[in-house]
Structure formats: C-alpha cells, structure tokens
C-alpha cells in the first residue's frame, strides 16, 4: 500500500475525526474500537437466533465451528501481514498450490506416493516458500506488497492447474483423519485452528518479533532507526503467512478429500473482511490476532445466516465483496484528513 500522511501522524489522527461527536471522547472511542466487534458479533447472533429457529441448534453451532477453522488460520497470517501495513493477496493461490502438492504426496489415487505426515510438512514448506518469495520481493526488491502478492496469487493457481493431471487427486480416508476426526463433536481442525490463534496471540504479545511487527506498522522509518531489522521481520511475517495459507490448503484438502483448483475461491474476501472488521487497520500497527478472529467469526456467522435464509450463493459472494468495502471504509473513516494521499 502506498500511503503518505502529510498533516497528522497516525497516532494523533483519531481524536480530530471530522465526524467526532462530543460524547465520543478518545477514551470511549478506544473502548468502542476494542469491544465493537464483540458487540457486533453478539448482536448478530442474537438477531439470527430470534429470526431463524435453526440457527441456535447444536448441529448448526458445530457447523459454524467446522467452517471457522480454515478462515481462522488464514486470518492469523493475514492479521500479522496487515499489522505491518502490508497485504497478502496470494492466500487463495498458495492454498490451492499446497492443496495439490499435499494431495499428490499423501496416499492418493493418482500416484503411488504415501509420505504420511511428511506430506503435510512438505506442503507447509511449500507454503513457506511462497510466503518467503512474497516477503523477499517486497522487502529487498522494494515492490508494494499488493503487487507482489497479486502476481503470486496467479502463480499459485497456475502451479495447482499444472499439478492437476487427467483427474483431480483424491486422498485416502485415513489421510484425512488428522483434519476430520471428531473431538467433542467438532472436527479436529477446529482445535488446531484455536491453537494457531493462541500461538499467534502469544507471538504478537510476548515476543520481540511481535513488538517489532507493531513497531514497523506504526512507523516504519522510526522502527528502522531504532534498530529493528525491518526487512528480516517482513520476510519472516510473509513466510509465516505462507505457512498458514498452506495449512489452510491442507485443511481444505482434508475436509473435501479431493484437490480442486476452485476450492479456495472467496477465501481472500472472507479473510480480509474478517481481519478488518475485527479492528485491525489496513494502515498497520493497530489490532491483533484476537480481534481479527472475532471479525472472522462475524463473517462466518453472517454467511451461515445467509445460507439458513436461503440466499442465492452467488449473491452471497457479492454481499461479501460489499462487506469488504464497507468494513474497510468504516474502519478507516476517522483517519481521513485533508490533503492525505492514498494511492
């Protein structure tokens, strides 16, 4: 993202918002930013419970949990990238590239390979490689991240299409177990996703790398002058995001049992919209993994509500696109300023 603040640095931009009502003191505004997404989620759940009797059933809540696993994992990776003030548009491409690689390495019906757990590890390494390329091209060749990751999106899809031979690889039932086996009535991948969220939270809150990520997102020049190794941090963050996109792809493979080039379609929207709705600003430096996870669950619940209400699936895609725009605009509204240049 190419962005320059001329009048106000981003820290002081909040209080003098053009729409600032008197009761909205900076302190209350911060409270609202922190708890707003949770309140939104609560209200959404309440409305859906009242409107649709099928919503608050045990079966539907399990469905929501199962559906959240992949977006939550993707959201942790994207939240870290967005905290830097960058963006990762390559999520869907990396997902399908990994999905096909893992499918061809696990026990499948196309070749005789059966690497077991190693297939997943190599798959995550492939995701890491995609992420590392994103990060290195962005940090060392100095190209805006949206452009690099936009290109890599299609590279990933091309790789997947190339790996698709005459028939889509289908993996054996046992190879899907680590994803789909039921624990407490919910597929195991949900718990893996929860662990990933917890690890992401700990990394951002309690490690030096985490603090450096916030520092770079807040003010990159300042961070660099205070001795943060900006380029290395960027490469590490993009690499982690790549691993998590890869994990998302492996989950998707486990769920479906068969690799599919279109399996990741729409994931990018859900993830960006969720991360931003949770209050992680696109300009970087603000937000976190927990907030983003709340935002992501809002998106999943919303989609679930639309499915229950029988909304046409294609229309649901359009609605999600509109939510992305609305969420980004709403969250950025207070940062507007005269003569601010946003490319």
């Amino acid at each position: 993202m190419v962005q320059t603040d001329y009048l106000a640095d981003s820290a002081s931009a909040l209080p003098d918002s053009p729409s600032g009502a008197d009761w909205l003191t900076p302190r209350r505004r911060r409270m609202l930013a922190a708890w707003g997404p949770v309140i939104t989620l609560g209200a959404l759940v309440l409305v859906l419970t009242i409107v649709n009797s099928k919503f608050a059933t045990a079966a539907n809540i399990k469905t929501i949990a199962n559906q959240s696993a992949i977006p939550l994992v993707l959201g942790v990776g994207l939240a870290m990238v967005i905290l830097l003030g960058a963006i990762d548009l390559s999520i869907e491409g990396v997902m399908v590239a990994t999905m096909f690689s893992v499918a061809l390495m696990a026990a499948n019906n196309v070749n005789d390979l059966d690497l077991g757990v190693l297939a997943i590890i190599v798959g995550l390494a492939i995701g890491a490689a995609f992420g590392a390329v994103n990060g290195m091209v962005n940090a060392y060749l100095r190209i805006p991240s949206f452009m690099v990751t936009f290109g890599m999106w299609f590279v990933g899809i091309g790789v997947a299409q190339r790996l698709l031979g005459r028939q889509p690889p289908r993996i054996d039932l046992e190879a899907r177990n680590w994803v789909t086996v039921q624990r407490l009535g919910v597929q195991q991948m949900f718990f893996i996703a929860v662990i990933v969220v917890a690890l992401g939270f700990l990394l951002l809150r309690h490690t030096r790398l985490g603090r450096h990520i916030y520092a770079i997102g807040g003010n990159e020049e300042l961070a660099s002058q205070s001795g943060v190794h900006v380029r290395r941090v960027k490469v590490m963050v993009f690499t982690m995001a790549g691993v998590l996109s890869g994990l998302g792809g492996a989950f998707a493979l486990g769920r479906a049992g068969v690799a599919d080039v279109t399996a990741s379609q729409g994931r990018l929207f859900t993830t960006i919209a969720g991360v931003v709705l949770g209050g992680t600003l696109l300009s970087g430096g603000r937000g976190g993994v927990l907030q983003s996870s709340v935002g992501i669950i809002i998106m999943i619940v919303l989609r679930n509500g639309m499915v229950l209400a029988g909304v046409d699936p294609f229309l649901q895609d359009a609605v999600e696109g509109a939510i992305v725009v609305a969420a980004v605009i709403a969250m950025n509204w207070s940062a507007r300023a005269k003569l601010r240049v946003v490319a």
């Binding site: 548009l89 949206f146 936009f150 990018l268 725009v325 980004v328 605009i329 940062a335 507007r336 946003v342």
Partner: peptide, 13 residues
C-alpha cells in the same frame, strides 16, 4: 481515502 486496490478488490467480488 481507502487504497484503490482494496476498493476495487471488493468491487471484483
């Protein structure tokens, strides 16, 4: 004042 790639990405959807 939101980056154009973001608005048009939403538009794409």
């Amino acid at each position: 004042q939101v980056a154009s790639f973001m608005i048009t990405l939403g538009g794409l959807g």
